[in-house]
């Protein structure tokens, strides 16, 4: 499936390398970072907020016997750095979960629609048109508000269930293309069953676009999750996610901008990284375009 020259092309693609580095960095923050968190991310520290004003203590505050709050405390006196590490993990977890679901649905529906043709195809394509025409964020927050279970699985289902359409379109087009190839026609003429044709001939051709679109989809899901959580209708407090930290941090924007700037920086780095990597993969895997 992958051209051995692809890796060489990849290494020469500066954008892709930067993207890969950023993605690696963010993943390290998310999966390894929490092990080094100085505090429990959900512990409201004594001395975390100013007893007079109630304001969170500034970055670099040292709590005697406990350690240093390198990024200060959040609005209720929890260690911002520890929450940032935990929040990045939650955000990535939700984004990956939603992307996996969207990719699975997109590949499955796209291939089936393209291979079956006829009414199946028409129904699938019209459903995609319909789904793409809906006011997206509106439907998503309405859905999540109505289900009203602050559950990461539910959030993944809502996000992934609304985001598979572009991939399905690409998969369908790819399937239509492959179906007409001579060797596939020949295999069919020899009596190969449909399942075998799909698995052996159609699916391998689907891997590259799924990889490329899936990578950029992670970026979109990070934005999607943060947007919903920023509105308070995604990941709910006290669970930290990059979006929900923005949500609670913005009331201290003027006093303690780090509460907004730190999660913002992580969101932009993550989205930028996955976008660059996706674009790079597209260049590398499909040099024709």
């Amino acid at each position: 499936m992958m051209d051995p020259r692809a890796w060489r092309r990849f290494r020469r693609n500066r954008g892709a390398i930067v993207g890969l580095a950023l993605v690696g960095l963010v993943n390290a923050v998310a999966w390894i970072g929490p092990a080094f968190a100085p505090f429990d991310p959900s512990e409201q520290l004594e001395g975390g907020t100013d007893p007079q004003t109630g304001a969170p203590v500034p970055p670099g505050t040292h709590l005697a016997g406990r350690g240093t709050l390198w990024l200060g405390a959040d609005e209720v006196g929890r260690d911002e750095l520890s929450r940032l590490l935990a929040g990045t993990r939650i955000s990535l977890l939700v984004a990956f979960g939603a992307t996996l679901l969207a990719v699975a649905l997109g590949v499955l529906i796209g291939i089936l629609a393209g291979y079956a043709g006829g009414p199946t195809d028409t129904v699938a394509m019209r459903s995609i048109d319909l789904l793409q025409s809906l006011p997206f964020l509106l439907v998503a927050i309405a859905l999540n508000r109505v289900i009203d279970r602050p559950d990461l699985w539910v959030l993944c289902l809502v996000m992934g269930g609304l985001s598979w359409t572009t991939l399905a379109r690409v998969m369908r087009a790819k399937t239509l293309q492959v179906r007409e190839l001579e060797y596939v026609q020949a295999a069919r003429a020899l009596g190969a069953p449909a399942a075998r044709l799909l698995l052996r001939h159609v699916l391998p051709n689907a891997i590259q676009p799924a990889l490329v679109l899936g990578t950029t989809l992670v970026a979109q899901m990070i934005i999607f999750e943060s947007a919903m959580s920023y509105l308070g209708l995604g990941v709910r407090p006290p669970t930290p996610s990059l979006g929900s930290m923005l949500h609670s941090g913005q009331q201290w924007l003027t006093h303690q901008p780090v509460l907004v700037l730190a999660p913002s920086a992580l969101i932009v780095a993550t989205v930028f990284g996955f976008n660059l990597l996706g674009e790079g993969l597209r260049d590398v895997l499909d040099p024709k375009d």
Binding site: I223, A227, G243, L253, V260, L261, S264, V268, N275
Partner: peptide, 14 residues
């Protein structure tokens, strides 16, 4: 295209 509106919005506001 990578900076979501809630990030740019909050940063501009600040």
């Amino acid at each position: 295209i990578s900076a979501p509106t809630f990030v740019t919005g909050l940063v501009f506001l600040y």
